[in-house]
Design a protein around this nucleic acid. Structure first.
Length: 465
RNA sequence: GGCGGCAUAGCCAAGUGGCAAGGCAAAGGUCUGCAAAACCUCUAUCCCCGGUUCAAAUCCGGGUGCCGCCUCCA
């Protein structure tokens, strides 16, 4: 039984999708005006894992993550760079996929763009106007917050407290300071679309409601995003969606914690961020994925190079175990087909431990601990005399579990160059001849070429470093 | 002001009532020609003070410290 911490109720709840066996999930994607930073990467990675695990658990998952490609920040940035918003957003969508791929994030079933969904957005706005939940003022359309009784239920804000703390209204066009824009009237020189309420473009919040509706339907199972989206973005999504349909929009809301720098939230506005592209200069991005998954998703994570470095060392342990299994299998020393029930039962224990952790609100930190315990078990119990059956069973489980998290995937299958192989051969001969000076010299030489040798009872192992 | 979160070893980090997971780092050991990997050993008055309980890291009350949302943000 999978349990999910639902931000709507602030409780862990049993996960029961609306349609048995099927999961509809939506996660807020990036506003594409720059490379994304590691803070942004966290939800992308985490919800990728949620999706993978639900699939692993047997659900048929439909997963949508949007691109916000119509927005003030994009327009401003385009002006700065002397380009147009469309070209700019297209560029950063491409760059998004490069980084996402390197982070091991699978493509969603669809990545809809705001600019491709204007019709749906307009009709949703119209629907709200028709119901009296939105109003047009001089080419702008606003959501009438007072018309939605549940406003504040996600962020647990009392509407009166919000009023008290609300900023002084700038435009004075709104009936209430809490009302928010569904449609923004065109400003001179800005990108715009025609609509029944005049030329303009959609506000930020409406896009997610409209795209979720058109790709998943009016009721979805899981809606995810960073904790900073709870208010106002997700609160507004609920108001729009449920206001229009009268039905519950998302059954479960999931929000990941922040990535911090020196215990302070990493954000574009504070400027204390590292883009994933920056980090890629120094570290393999699969390490960043492992690092992010090594803490529980609702807890904040501090980011620093030292911590990524520690994560890199930690991951190495899993790679070593995988490489070792490959090596033992390649020796093919014991091809007996003896099934060892005790061994298989032990393996299953770790699998269960992993699944129990993931079932409990996707506790990836605990799931990783289960993988480490499996690694230790394999290191102790798999050796050159183990049967191929055992080795394959161990390998298959290790691959299966790391695959669910998408970690330790980049196993090197590249063959060695001829001259490297010759050097290894030459060193083996030197060792036989007890010419250790030569052997060590060759080992250092290879190390300089990023080939690390390890001598074992059965022969020499190598790995790229 | 309103709402919410967090505090566990040198570091990272799980754990919501029953002898405190896992990883990194350091130290010692086994194995090895040496290394590497692996294995073994070692490392915690769970922020403080009270309370409830046979039993508290975990529940309750009170502190202290840090952070977040209430405004664009993942």
């Amino acid at each position: 039984m999978i349990k999910i911490y639902n931000s709507l109720t602030n409780k862990k709840e049993e996960f029961l999708p609306i349609d048995k066996g099927h999961v509809k999930m939506y996660s807020c994607g990036p506003t594409v005006y720059n490379y994304f930073h590691i803070g942004n990467a966290r939800p992308f990675i985490f919800f990728d894992v949620v999706r993978r695990y639900l699939q692993y658990a047997g659900y048929n998952v439909k997963f949508i993550q949007n691109f916000t490609d119509v927005d003030d920040k994009i327009i401003n940035r385009a002006i700065q760079e002397g380009t147009n918003p469309k070209a700019l957003s297209e560029k950063y969508i491409e760059e998004y996929f490069k980084d996402a791929d390197a982070l091991g994030i699978k493509r969603a079933d669809a990545h809809p763009k705001v600019s491709d969904n204007i019709t749906q957005i307009i009709s949703l706005i119209q629907r709200l106007i028709d119901k009296g939940m939105a109003y047009e003022k001089d080419g702008n359309v606003y959501y009438r917050v007072s018309s939605f009784a549940g406003y504040g239920k996600l962020s647990k804000q009392d509407i009166n407290d919000l009023e008290a703390g609300a900023r002084v209204e700038v435009s004075g066009e709104k009936e209430d300071p809490l009302d928010f824009a569904l449609w923004k009237k065109k400003k001179e020189g800005e990108i715009y679309w025609d609509s029944p309420f005049g030329q303009g473009r959609p506000g930020w919040h409406i896009e997610c409601s409209a795209m979720a509706f058109s790709y998943l339907g009016e009721q979805i199972d899981i809606h995810g995003g960073g904790a900073d989206l709870v208010f106002p973005h997700h609160e507004n999504e609920i108001a729009q969606s449920e206001g229009a349909t009268g039905k519950q929009f998302s059954k479960y809301w999931m929000h990941n914690g922040y990535i911090n720098i020196d215990n302070k939230k990493m954000s574009k506005s504070l400027g204390n961020f590292f883009t994933v592209r920056d980090i890629a200069q120094e570290f393999d991005l699969s390490t960043v994925r492992f690092f992010i998954l090594s803490a529980h998703y609702r807890n904040p994570i501090n980011f620093s190079r030292d911590l990524i470095k520690a994560a890199e060392n930690s991951l190495e342990r899993i790679y070593n175990a995988k490489n070792n299994l490959d090596y033992l299998i390649s020796l093919n020393k014991n091809s007996k087909a003896d099934d060892d029930n005790e061994f298989n039962e032990e393996l299953n224990k770790y699998k269960k431990q992993f699944c129990d952790a993931m079932d409990d609100d996707f506790n990836t930190a605990d799931a990783i601990a289960a993988i480490f315990e499996l690694v230790k078990f394999i290191n102790i119990n798999a050796d050159e005399n183990s049967s191929q059956n055992k080795l394959y069973a161990a390998q298959s489980l290790l691959n299966e579990l790391t695959g669910v998290l998408g970690i330790a995937q980049s196993i090197d299958t590249q063959m060695l160059d001829k001259d490297i192989e010759e050097l290894i051969e030459k060193r083996q001969q030197a060792r036989k001849d007890k010419d250790f000076a030569l052997a060590d010299k060759i080992r250092d030489e290879l190390k300089a070429k990023n080939i690390m040798l390890e001598d074992t009872k059965e022969g020499v192992k190598w790995k790229r470093i």
